[in-house]
Structure formats: C-alpha cells, structure tokens
Amino acid sequence: MPGLRGHTGSREPTLGPRAAPVRGLYFLPGPLKKLLLVLLLSLTPAWASVPTAVAPSEPPGAPECPEACACSAGGQANCSALALLSVPVGLSRRMHTLLLDHNRLCTLPPSAFEGACALHLLDLSENGLRSMHARAFWGLGALQLLDLSANQLETLEPGTFTPLRALRSLSLARNRLAQLEPAALGALPGLRALSLQDNALSALEPRLLARLPALDALSLSGNPWACGCALRPLCVWLRLHPRASEAEPLLCVSPGRLTLTPLTAFSDDAFRHCAKSLSVRDLVVIYALGPVSFLASLATCLVLGSVITACRARRRRHHHLAARRPPRPPDPAGPACCSSEPESEVAPPAKA
C-alpha cells in the first residue's frame, strides 16, 4: 500500500513528459494521428482509476464508532443485542442512526446521547427500560423517529419529549403506562404517528391530543378502555379522524353494560350527562376570585364575631350591675293606698 501511495504521488510530475508526444502529433499524418489519439484516450480510464483503487487505504470517512458497535459510512451505528447496561460513549455528530435495541438499559440519565446532535433515528426497543430522566433526550433536536416499545415504562416525567421538536414518529407500545400526562409529551407540532397499543391506559387526558395538531396515525389497541365521561375527548377525536386509528376497532372493557362497545359508537348525546369541562376563562376567574372571596368571608366572620362578643359582654355587665344595686325601701303609704279591697265590702259592726 505504501507503494501505491508513492505511485499516485508521482502522477503529477509525469504529466510534463506525457505532454511532449502530444505536441508532436501535429507533425504526423492525419490517419496515424487519429489512431494515436484513440489509443491515448483509451488509456485515460486506466490511470484515472488509480485514486479510486487506493481509496480503501485512506482513513475511512465513516463517523466515529462507539466501542463494540458496528458503524457504516452512511452514519449508522449498530449496537443491537450487545447486553449493554448504558448508552455507549463516543457518539459522533455525524451519526444519523443509532440502534440500541435488545440491550439491558434500565434507565436513561440526563443528556444520555450527548454528542449525537444530528441523530435522526433512535431505536431503544426491548431494553427493559423502567425510567428516563426528564432531560434524557436533550440535544436531540434533529431526531425524527424514536422507538421505545417493549419496555417497562410506567410513568413519564413532564417535559421528557419537549426537546424533540422535529419528532415525527413515536412508539410507546408494549409498556406499562396507566396514565399519560400531556406535559410528558409536550407540544410536538410535527408528530404524525403515535403508538400507545398494549399498555394499561383506560382514558386519555383531554389536552393530550389537542397538542398534537399534525397527528394522523394513532395506535390504541390492547388497552383496557373504560367508557365513561373521561373518554369523551378520545371518542370525539376518533370521529373527527376516522382514518387515523388502526383497522381493528377499539372496544370498551368496562363498565359491564358497555363491554365490547366500539369507541366510535358513542355520539355527543351519550356524554350529555357528563359535567361540562371548564374553559380557560372560567379557570382564570375561579383562581382570581377564589382568594378574594375567601378573604372577604374571613373578614365578615371576624366582624360578626366581634359584634356578637361585644353584645354578650355588654349584657353580662348590665346584669352584674343590676345584681349589685341595693333594694329600694318599702313605701309606708303603700298598703293604704294600694289596698285593692273596696270599703263597701267591709262588714259593718254588729248592733247591740
């Protein structure tokens, strides 16, 4: 191989001697001149192909490859089924695809994929993941496809997927999610496909689907849907997007009288008995007037208590003064003046 490099390096000086015969062609007869030109042109691919022959000996143009992984020149790092316990270090900025499926990653720390800022596809399926830090995916602003299927996730931290503004496909299938908060997904304006099948979801939060305006593919089968008032937002969304869900119908698991009823069979009249959710304006009014009303009620109670206490104290003082006042002396003329018996009723004295 060193000899090949020396031959290619001496290619430039040979252009000078090769040019002399070319200039001498002008003095040859016409047919012979054409024959020599054809021969020279036919030799051109031979010496022009020398650089391509030595290309494999040059340092590979593939991105830096983590240890034990297999990398390709197209920017793919294959780290599948290597029994890895953590994300490998040494991720390159030129890496576009990272396959980490079928490993043993139980958790993802903050900035777990530091350095792979140009990553487009990340496969973390079949790892037994139990938890992910809220900042695990920081720095992956270019990520478009994320596969977290077949893990053991039960909850998601708020803001987990917020940095993934370019995300188009997200799979959370075959996990243990019983509740999915809107704050966990955040606002993903470009998300088009979301898979939530085979989890423990009984309903979806009203704001979850409202923050995914581009969503047109939603997989929800294999969840124990409880057909109550909490399922109203999902039923409305399914009616508005008839082609978004899978071909298999979504059926109710509870309550008993609605078991095996398709979710799309519920109209708005079926939720008429449900309490209407408060709007943002109503919530603002409640939160604004609540403390004021509480303070006003507290002040009123204090004033009324003070008035009642003052009245009772005054009444007790009045009774105390009345008890200490000396009794009035009897009036001597009282019996004569106040006698109630008339004089005519007094019996006259007996005569002798």
Rank of each mutant, 00 (worst) to 15 (best):
R257N: 15
P233Q: 06
H241M: 09
P213Q: 02
T259F: 04
L212S: 01
V236L: 07
N223I: 08
A275P: 12
S221K: 00
H241A: 10
V284A: 14
S277E: 15
S245W: 03
S267E: 11
A217G: 09
A193N: 04
A193E: 03
R257T: 14
L278S: 08
L251P: 05
C227W: 08
C252L: 14
S202Q: 13
S221L: 04
G190S: 08
D268Y: 02
P262D: 06
D268P: 05
L191R: 01
I286G: 08
D282V: 12
L231V: 11
W237F: 13
L260G: 10
G222E: 06
S277K: 07
S277Y: 05
V280N: 08
V253A: 15
A187D: 00
N199W: 00
E246I: 02
C235V: 05
P213M: 04
V253R: 11
C235Y: 00
L231F: 13
N199G: 05
L283R: 09
A226K: 10
A187F: 08
L194S: 01
R232S: 15
A217H: 06
L231S: 12
S202P: 04
G186Y: 07
S219L: 09
R281Y: 15
N199R: 00
H241I: 12
L209N: 08
V285L: 15
E205K: 02
A230T: 13
L185C: 03
R239I: 05
T259M: 10
K276Q: 14
P242Q: 06
W237G: 03
T259Y: 02
L263T: 10
L208N: 00
V253M: 12
C227E: 03
V253C: 04
D268E: 15
L185D: 03
